[in-house]
Amino acid sequence: MRQRVANVEKMARIIRQEAIKMIYKAQSGHPGGSLSEADILACLYFDQMNVRPEDPHWDERDRFVLSKGHACPGLYASLALRGFFGMEQLNTLRQFGSILQGHPVMQKVPGLDMTTGSLGQGLSVACGMAIGLRRRGNDARVYTLLGDGECDEGQVWEAAMTASKYGLGNLCAIVDHNGLQNDSTTCVIQPQENIAERFECFGWRVTRIDGHDAWQILNALDEAKRHPGQPTLILARTVKGKGVSYMENVVAWHGTAPNEAQFEIAMQELEG
């Protein structure tokens, strides 16, 4: 386990560096959520998920839906580091003709399982994947990552009911609970302090963890596999902008690119 933790911690640091580099180069994108989700993505793509970069459409692969699609720089970095496409592609984020659109597109990006970017839609898609896979005896697992602000959307709760009704134990949803959304804190805009209790009421198995503690994330993901008849929700308490001091817990870094001086500071801090 210690080895696994060290490995994903290392990968999370690189994911953060690459995400910030991409957003700086593009001068556009969403750094806050890309940093808060990095540890979770590292655990998924560098420990948990059964994927084949050389065969991205391999039918037995585990699926991942980034329901909070705006945080795709973190995902693009993860996929490139995992070997689905060349690292040089990361320099093209949001540029004309790039495979790396502002929000992710499944036909363009090797290893990407679903097109997202409009909040609230990913959990329904993940339910469809999980039902479809299970009913034809495919043991692949389906993971999806939601934002806490995203849980304002009613469709999330429609999907939560479906997952529970069909006992989708092959589905694991993770909420990146960083407490901030576009306009302000979630407490101000639409309080989300009882997400865990709500999912429990909706019939889910719920685990509360520190979303920056690789040990806890890996344990929670391992445990989720041992409950075949019930979907698991991992409520991951995170810090938006994690790893870059001036971005941490600052609403303004939801969708703003750093300037040159800020970029230098960010890269120094993320080297640590």
Partner: peptide, 16 residues
């Protein structure tokens, strides 16, 4: 829950 139904259909389609 038609919005959810549309999304579930999308997910079903992605797995063939």
């Amino acid at each position: 829950a038609e919005q959810n139904g549309a999304g579930v259909c999308a997910g079903l389609a992605t797995v063939g």
